[in-house]
Design a binder for these strands. Structure first.
Length: 345
DNA sequence: CACCCGTGGTT
DNA sequence: TAACCAAGGGT
């Protein structure tokens, strides 16, 4: 065995031993595995979400619900409210379902095949839990791994068509031992050095193995298909207040902001034609416009104050103290509307 | 495979 | 500032 036989995973793991990020959901140095509950919770929170955004939520959740059994017993409503602001709210509904399933099973299953059957656990998360929490060899492919592998092998085919090739290449460099550390090392490398823009190849432990680096323009990988334009929608939300309280509804489980508390609205279908329907008749005073950008459209939502002598519409809801709206767990769009209205009401 | 589903930070 | 990006999953 010569030094030139050192594999990519050897080099990466040696780098990780020195440069691993210290994160609240990671095992302390010296303890190889960590609590599957914390691994699962962090992985779900981290789906399409930055480490910085997750940290305070992870701390809040683990303090309030220290175990999967505790979370399994929590009312869904409480979990949804605690999740407010993190986004992708189907994750919160699936979190409760998954916790109850795992608690019923006496704990999380240890194999990818079983893990992927759980609600909110897809191919990535199943592999990550199997590798990180249970020490199994699993090929963990997230956006970081896609980027690192695309550069290492200078994959010319654009995403998402290149996913099959990327998975094969990732599998070829995944070690039998320390697959969990390897996965986290790939993610740390992708987050810090092999970053989406302006990669710092001078610090990269894999530069000598990188075909993208050899090509002199590693940053052009991964090549991606063009994205669709983001349309702008208009809509209206209604502020209906009386006696220091305001009317909140619970949104349908499916669709935008599913299952979250909110102000009644017109469905945001209304364009300039004003085709939306108010929850009750009467004169309305426009308090202002809230602008908010979602993944696939932007929204300009008028906030209209309605006469409080009328009773609210047919949609089920509850009167909520205006001076305690923070505890309602409103998603950001409606939190913006609340701060706009509360300042004037 | 294409589309839907949040949010906040960065350039 | 408009666009891009971040430890994806469900349908």
């Amino acid at each position: 065995m010569t030094a030139s036989m050192e594999t990519i995973s050897d080099k990466l793991l040696a780098w990780y031993d020195v440069h691993a990020r210290s994160l609240p959901w990671r095992a302390r140095p010296g303890s190889p595995l960590t609590d599957p509950y914390r691994v699962w919770l962090s992985e779900v929170m981290l789906q399409q979400t930055t480490v910085a955004a997750v940290k305070p939520y992870f701390a809040k959740f683990t303090e309030r619900w220290p175990s999967v059994e505790a979370l399994a017993q929590a009312p869904e409503e409480d979990v949804m409210a605690a999740w407010a602001g993190l986004g992708y709210y189907s994750r919160a509904r699936n979190l409760v379902k998954c916790a109850r399933a795992a608690a019923r099973m006496g704990g999380f299953p240890e194999t990818e095949v079983e893990l992927v059957k759980l609600p909110g656990v897809g191919a990535y998360t199943a592999a990550a839990i199997a590798a990180i929490a249970f020490g199994q060899r699993a090929v963990v492919v997230d956006a970081n791994v896609e980027r690192v592998v695309s550069r290492l092998f200078a994959i010319a085919q654009p995403l998402p068509a290149s996913r099959k090739t990327i998975r094969e290449k990732a599998g070829a460099i995944t070690p039998d031992d320390r697959a969990g550390d390897f996965a986290q090392a790939m993610m740390d490398l992708g987050a810090g050095i092999c970053a989406a823009r302006d990669p710092d190849c001078a610090l990269c432990p894999l530069a000598a193995d990188c075909q993208g680096y050899a090509s002199a323009d590693p940053a052009r990988f991964p090549i991606k298909a063009a994205k669709k334009a983001k349309p702008v929608r208009q809509g209206t939300a209604y502020w209906i207040a009386q006696g220091g309280k305001v009317w909140l509804v619970r949104r349908a489980d499916k669709g935008m902001l599913g299952g979250m508390r909110a102000f009644p609205d017109d469905g945001w279908r209304a364009g300039a034609d004003g085709s939306g329907t108010a929850p009750l008749a009467g004169e309305g005073e426009t308090l202002g416009i809230v602008r908010h950008s979602f993944t696939h459209f932007s929204l300009e939502m008028a906030v209209v104050k309605l006469d409080s002598d009328h009773s609210p519409g047919e949609q089920a809801g509850e009167w909520w103290p205006i001076d305690d709206l923070e505890s309602a767990g409103l998603p950001t769009l409606f939190a913006k509307a609340a701060s706009l209205a509360a300042a004037q009401d």
